[in-house]
Design a binder for these strands. Structure first.
Lengths: 208, 208, 208, 208
DNA sequence: GGCTAAGCGAGACGGTACGTCCCGTCTTAGG
DNA sequence: CCTAAGACGGGACGTACCGTCTCGCTTAGCC
C-alpha cells in the first residue's frame, strides 16, 4: 500500500492553520485600511503569528496581500449563459461595475498600483486574477463568433481589452463615474461601431 | 512707475532657481529609479536644497513628483489635423503607444499607482494630464460628429474612454504587449463595430 | 565683542536635555537589570526619546552604557591623604571592595565583559574609568617612593596592578569572596613580601 | 554473554560521535569568531547536527562553549618541579603569559565575559578551569611554605590571587601589555615586598 | 541704514515600519 | 529514546524615510 507518491518532507510541516490565519488577517486589514495601510506587523499581530513566520513564506507584504486577495476572490468568476454572447458579456460588465465600485475595486486598484513598482506582484495579479477572467470572457466571445453573432475575423484578445479596458481605466483614474450606463455605452460602441451619419436612429442598443 | 498692480509680499521672495532645481531633481530621480525609489531626502540632496524648502511648497513627495512630471510633459499634446477625425485619432493613438512604451509610460503608470493611495495626487493627475488630453481628443471627435463621420448620438466621453481605456489597461497590467496593431484593432472595433456573420470581408479597416 | 571663538554649527543644535535623559535612562536600566538586560528600545522608551536619536549619537548600546556609566561615576575618585602612601592605598582598596561588592561592581564587570567583544568599548572603559584611577593611585605610590616609604626601583605600573589586579580578578571570577581581609592580605604581601621562615612573627601588618 | 552489568537504557543510545562533532565545531567557531560570533545555529550547521540535539544536552550556547573549551584545554596543566616553589611558580607564570597572549587568552577572556551574565557558566569556568589551576599552584606554594621558602603565616588563597590576579587583570582590561617582565615584576613584589628606602640595591630578584 | 519678514540650508528630533538575526521550543519522520 | 530537519513564537536589532522642529543666515521692501 503506497502511503504517498511523494516522500514526506523532513522536519516539522508547515502549519496550515497559521497560513490561513495570515491570509485571513491580511484580507481583513486590506478591506479595512486598504493596501497602503497594511503592515506586516499588523498582519502578524492580528493573526497571532510571528513576523518571522510571514517572512519565511512571503518576500514582502505585497506578496501576502496578493495571495490573500486571490485566495478570497478567486472562485467568484461567473458569466451568465443566455445563448447570446453579447448579452452575456454586457450583463457581466454591468455586474463588474458594481463590484469595482466597492471594496474589491479599491483592492484591485491598489494591487495594480503595487504592481507598478514590483513586477513579480503584477505578474501574479495578471496570472492569478486577470487571465482567468479574460479567458472566461474570451470563451464567451469565441462562442459568439462561432454562432455568427460576432464577426469571425475579430481578435478576441483585442476585443476583450476593448470592452474591459475602459472600465479599468475609469476605476483607476476616476476621471468620470463608473456607471452601468458607461459599461453599456462601451459595449454598444465596440459591438455596433460608431461611424455613421450625424443624425440617425443609429443601430439598436446592445442593451440587455 | 508701478512695477506691479499687486503689492509685493514682504520678506525674501521665493527662489525660482531652487524651485526649478527641485523639479528637475525629482524628474531625474523619477526616471532613474521610478517613483517607489523616490524619496524627499534624495530630491533635496540631489537638488542641493533643504528638505524644509520642499515641504514648504509641497505637501508630500507625490505632489512634487506630479508637478515635476507635468512641468516636463505638459506642452507635448499634438493631434494631426487631416480632415478625418478617425484618421487623426488613430494616428495619435499609434503615437501614444510609442510614448507609453518608453519612460513616460513608466512614469504615468507610477503616478496613477501613486494616486491609488493619495486622492489629491490622482485628482492632480487627472486635471493636469488626463483632462487636457481627453478634451483635445473629444474636440477632434466632436468635429467628426459635426461632419457626419461619426454618429451624432455618440457620447464623446464614453467614446474617448473606449478608445484610450484599453491602452491604459495594457500599459498598467502588462498582460499583453502594447503595439500599434493593438491600437489599430481597438479603433477598428470601436468605430466599425464587431457584430456580423462569422465569415465576411467585414467592414474596411479604419487604418491609416 | 567676540561672541564665540567657534563658529556656530549650522542646523538645529543637539538637545542637551535629550542627551541627558538618554544617559540617565540607560543608567537606571543598567542598575536595575544589568547590562545584558539592557536594550536600546527600553532606553528610548524610558527616556521618552526616539530610537533613531540614540543611534544618531552612539553606534551601539555598549557605547551608550559606557558613557552613561562614566557620566555617573567619573567624579567619584578619592584617595585619603594621611601622609603614608601605603596607608592611603590600603584604605582606598578597602573602600573599593565595598563599592565592587555592590551595583557598581556588577556594572564594571559587565562593561569589561562587553569590552571582550568590542575593542572600542574596552578602550573607552580603560581611558574613561581605569586610567584616571590608576593614575591617581600611581601618584600616591610615587609620593611614597619619594618619601622613602616604598623602594625607589619599583615600577609604579606593575605595583598598581599587583595591588588592584587581584581585586578585579575576584570580582570577575567570583571564585572566592571579595572581602576587606583579602584586600589587606594582598597589600601586606605586595608591600612586605612573603619570603621567610615557616614560623615567625613575620613582618607587621600594613593594616590601617 | 552479558554486554554490561548495568541494564542498558532503552531506546537509541546517545551518539558519541555527534557529541564530539559538536564540541569540535564549537571550538573551531570559538577560535575563529570569538564567543560573540558564536551561534548555536552555526555550531549545528558546522557539526552537521540538529539544533535540537544540542539543546538536548546543553542548556545554552555558553555551556557548549565552556565544555568545548574545557575538553580542549583541560589536560594542559604543568608546573615545573625544581625544588624551589618560587622558581616553579614564576616559571609557570611566564609560560602562562605566552598562552594568554594567544588564542587561549582570548577564549578565556570571553568565557569570563560570558560568565558575567550567566552565573552557571561562570561557576563552570571556575570549577572546570580556574580551581584546578589554583589548586595546583597552591600545592606548589604550600610545599614552599613547608620548606621554609615562604613564610608560614601566608594565606595560600590570597597569595595565589596576588600572583595571578594581575595577569588576569591585564589580559581582560588590556590597559598595558602582558609581558614576561610584568609577570616577573609582580612575583618580585609579592615575594620580596616593596617597602624600603628610596635608593637601595633592594632585595635580589626572584627571577629564574 | 536699520527694521521687519519671509526664504532657505542644515540638521536634530519623534516616530513607524521595515526586514534580519538568533533565540529556545515545537512537531514531524526516521533510526 | 535519539536524531535530523525545520517550522514556529518571540525579542531586539539597526536602517530608511517620514514629516516636524529649531537654529542662524540671507535677501528683500519699507520706513
Amino acid at each position: 500500500v503506497t502511503k504517498s507518491l511523494l516522500k514526506a518532507a523532513p522536519g516539522r510541516p508547515r502549519s496550515e492553520s497559521t497560513h490561513e490565519a495570515i491570509l485571513q488577517a491580511a484580507n481583513e486589514l486590506l478591506e479595512e485600511n486598504g493596501f497602503s495601510g497594511l503592515t506586516v506587523e499588523a498582519i502578524a499581530a492580528s493573526a497571532g503569528v510571528a513576523k518571522t513566520t510571514i517572512y519565511r513564506w512571503w518576500p514582502n507584504k505585497g506578496a501576502v496581500a496578493m495571495e490573500a486577495f486571490l485566495a478570497a476572490t478567486s472562485p467568484k468568476i461567473a458569466f451568465p449563459e443566455t445563448g447570446s454572447a453579447i448579452n452575456d458579456v454586457v450583463t457581466q460588465m454591468r455586474t463588474l461595475i458594481g463590484v469595482y465600485n466597492g471594496v474589491t475595486g479599491k483592492i484591485v486598484s491598489e494591487l495594480i498600483a503595487l504592481g507598478q513598482s514590483d513586477p513579480e506582484t503584477l505578474r501574479n495579479f495578471v496570472t492569478g486574477y486577470l487571465e482567468p477572467r479574460r479567458t472566461a470572457a474570451k470563451r464567451i466571445l469565441k462562442d459568439g463568433m462561432e454562432r455568427g453573432e460576432i464577426r469571425g475575423d475579430v481578435d478576441p484578445d483585442i476585443l476583450v481589452d476593448s470592452l474591459y479596458g475602459p472600465i479599468f481605466h475609469r476605476m483607476l483614474s476616476k476621471h468620470a463615474p463608473l456607471t452601468e450606463e458607461f459599461a453599456q455605452g462601451v459595449a454598444d460602441y465596440v459591438f455596433r461601431g460608431t461611424v455613421g451619419p450625424k443624425e440617425g436612429g443609429g443601430p439598436a442598443s446592445t442593451g440587455v
